[in-house]
Design a protein around this nucleic acid. Structure first.
Lengths: 343, 343
DNA sequence: TTGAAAGCGTTACCAT
DNA sequence: ATGGTAACGCTTTCAA
C-alpha cells in the first residue's frame, strides 16, 4: 500500500488554514509574513508528523528552475571523467543540485542530440567537454540563458566560461625534463583530433623540442577504433621504424597503456632503452614496474572550480554572462620511467 | 536574447485553435480523436517551424512520472560502476529515460539521505547497490511503488528484484583452479564487510579449500580507510607471517592492486613464488607483467538486464511487484599469474 | 471534429 | 496576521 502522497493542500485542509499560510511557513517566510509563532509551530509539527515532502517537480514548474545540472563528458567510464563526476556530485548535492550525466563519445551529432534533449527546459546548467563542431549549439545554449561551463577542453572561437588545465605548459615541461635527462629523440604519441587540449599538448612538446634544436617525431593515432588494440600495434611499428628513439611521451594515459603494452612486446626496457612520460596520471602508473612518470591534473581543484563557477552562474547575482575562465596548473611526477636516479 | 519559450498555449493561440487539439496532435492521437488531416498537418508544420518542445516538467507533474532513474552505487568513480553507468546510460536514453547518479560510499546514512532526497516524487525508479542496514528503506521504497532494482549485491531478507553475478560459484572455481595448479596454501584477501557478494566470495573460496582438505588463510582488511596504503602494508605482513603461502586470491581488483604492490615490495615473483588470481577483471590485469588471472563480470549483460528489468517494472503491464531476479555467470580468465604454462 | 475546463503541487501577488 | 487565487505547461474527461 503506497503511502498516500500528501500535498500542501492536504495540510491546509487538515489544519483548517489556507494553502498560502502553509507555503509561507514552509519557505521560512513565517516571520516576514508575520504569521503567529503558535501557528507556525503547529504547522511545522504537523508537517514533520505526516512526513510531508514538497514536490520538486511542482516547484520546478512554478519557479522555472529544476536544480538539475547536466554533466556531459566524452565517456563517463573513463577514469578521468568518472573521478571528476564523483567529486562534483558531492558538491552539487550539498547545494541542492542533482546531476544527470551523459557521454558523447566525442560525436558532435550525439552531443547535439543530447543537448537538445536537455534543453527541454528541465535543467538549469551544463558542464560540458565539447566535441568538435559544437560552437553554434553552445552559443545557442548561452543565448537561451542556460549556465554553461566547458571543461577539459574549451572552444577558442566562442565566449564561454571554462575550467581547463595548462596543457601546453605541462607538455613543454615534461618534454624539457626528458631532454634534460639526456634524450635526443623524443617521440610524441597522440591521437589525430582537433580537440584543443590535444593540440596544446602537441604544441608544448613541439616548442620544447624546437627550443633544443631537436627533431619532432610524432605518431598520430586515428581517433576512432582505438580500442581494438591496433593502437598498440601502431606504436610498435613507430618504435621499430624509429630506431634512434630514446624516449616516448604519451599525450594521454590510455595511449600510454597501449604504449607500455607495445614496449613490452618489443622487449624494450624502461628506462634503459627508452624513457617514458605520460599525460594524465593514473593509479596504475605507480603500480607498474618501473613506475611511470606522469603529469597529474588537479582533479579536486577542477571539480571545485567547476561547481564554484556553476553555482555562481546559477545564483547569478547580476552578471548572467559571468566571465569564469580558469586555467589550472598540473603537477609533473617524475618517477623511475624517466629518471635513472629513481631506479 | 533568450529564445522565447513557446508553449502549447502559444501554438493554440497563434493557430486559432484550442489547446486540446494541439495536445492531441502532439500525442499522436489525431487519428483516434478524428482531427482532420488538414489541421493535423498544419499544426505539425507549425510546431516544427517554431521549434516547439514540450516541457518535461509539466508532463511529469501531470502524469506523475518523471522519466528519471536514479543510479545509486557505492562509488561512481570505481571502474566497475563507471562502466555499468556508461552502458546503462545508452539504453536509458534510448528509451527516453534520464539517469541521475549518486555515490553512497557504502554509508547507510548517506544512502538513506540520498534515497530520501529522490523519493520526493521526482524519480520513477532506483537502481541500487545497497549499503548495509538498508532493508527498511528499500522496503518502503517498494511499498511506495517505486521501481527498485538492486545490483552487485542483494538483500536476502527482503523480496526485491535484483541483478547479480555468481559470486560463490566463481570464487569456488578460481580457488579450485589454483588447487589444480598445485597450490596447497591459498590465502584469501578480502574486506571485512557484510556485503553479501563479499560473503559469497569468501564462501566459495572456503568450500573449495575444504573440499580439498586444505586450510583457510583469510586476511580481512578493515573496510574503511583502505585508500591510505595501509592495505598494502597489511598484505605484506600477511604474506611475511605466512611463509608457506603459495597463492593469493583477491576478492576485488582494488585489493589485488594493493596486493601486487605488496608482493613487489617483498620482491616476490609471480607466479614462481606465489600464484595470483583476482575477482573483477580489469584492463590493468592484462597490462601487468605477468598478466593477472581474473574473474570477469559480464558488464554488458548486467547493464542489459538492469535496463530490461527497470523498463519492465516501469511499464509494468499488470504485475507491479515483478519478480525480476537475475544471477549471471562470470568468466574466469586464466593468465600467466596462475598458470606456468602461459608464461 | 473540436473546445472548455479541471487538475497535477507549488509560489507569490493582492486582498482582507 | 492570514486567505483567495492566478499561473507554471501539460493531459484528459466531458460537452458540444
Amino acid at each position: 500500500m503506497p503511502k498516500k502522497k500528501i500535498s500542501i493542500k492536504d495540510i491546509a485542509r487538515s489544519l483548517g488554514i489556507s494553502i498560502t499560510t502553509v507555503s509561507f511557513i514552509l519557505n521560512g517566510k513565517a516571520k516576514e509574513k508575520r504569521i503567529s509563532d503558535e501557528l507556525t509551530l503547529k504547522v511545522e509539527e504537523y508537517i514533520k508528523h505526516v512526513g510531508y515532502r514538497p514536490s520538486h517537480l511542482a516547484q520546478s514548474l512554478r519557479l522555472g528552475k529544476s536544480k538539475v545540472i547536466v554533466f556531459m563528458v566524452e565517456d563517463i567510464s573513463n577514469q578521468f571523467f568518472a573521478s571528476i563526476a564523483r567529486k562534483i556530485e558531492e558538491k552539487a548535492y550539498k547545494n541542492g543540485y542533482k546531476i544527470i550525466y551523459c557521454s558523447t563519445d566525442n560525436d558532435p551529432d550525439k552531443a547535439k542530440a543530447l543537448i537538445d534533449t536537455f534543453k527541454v527546459r528541465s535543467v538549469d546548467g551544463f558542464i560540458i567537454t565539447p566535441t568538435p563542431d559544437l560552437e553554434s549549439t553552445i552559443t545557442e545554449l548561452i543565448e537561451e540563458d542556460f549556465a554553461v561551463l566547458l571543461f577539459d577542453r574549451w572552444i577558442p572561437s566562442i565566449d564561454c566560461s571554462y575550467v581547463v588545465v595548462e596543457n601546453e605548459k605541462s607538455a613543454f615541461e615534461a618534454t624539457s625534463h626528458l631532454i634534460q635527462n639526456g634524450c635526443m629523440n623524443i617521440g610524441f604519441v597522440t591521437v589525430a583530433s582537433d580537440q584543443i587540449q590535444m593540440i596544446d599538448r602537441l604544441e608544448g612538446y613541439g616548442k620544447a623540442i624546437e627550443a633544443h634544436g631537436q627533431n619532432k617525431k610524432v605518431l598520430m593515432l586515428p581517433f576512432h577504433h582505438l580500442s581494438e588494440n591496433s593502437a598498440s600495434h601502431k606504436i610498435q611499428q613507430f618504435v621499430k621504424s624509429n630506431t634512434d628513439l630514446d624516449a616516448l611521451f604519451f599525450a594521454t594515459n590510455y595511449l600510454a597503456f597501449e604504449g607500455l603494452q607495445a614496449l613490452n612486446n618489443l622487449k624494450k626496457q624502461i628506462p634503459n632503452d627508452l624513457l617514458v612520460v605520460s599525460f594524465d596520471d593514473h593509479y596504475f602508473f605507480t603500480l607498474f614496474q618501473p613506475n611511470i612518470s606522469a603529469i597529474e591534473q588537479p582533479l579536486e581543484t577542477i571539480a571545485e572550480k567547476l561547481m564554484e563557477g556553476m553555482l555562481k552562474m546559477l545564483n547569478g547575482n547580476g552578471d548572467p554572462k559571468l566571465d569564469f575562465k580558469i586555467i589550472l596548473p598540473n603537477t609533473l611526477h617524475i618517477r623511475e620511467s624517466s629518471d635513472f636516479k629513481k631506479i
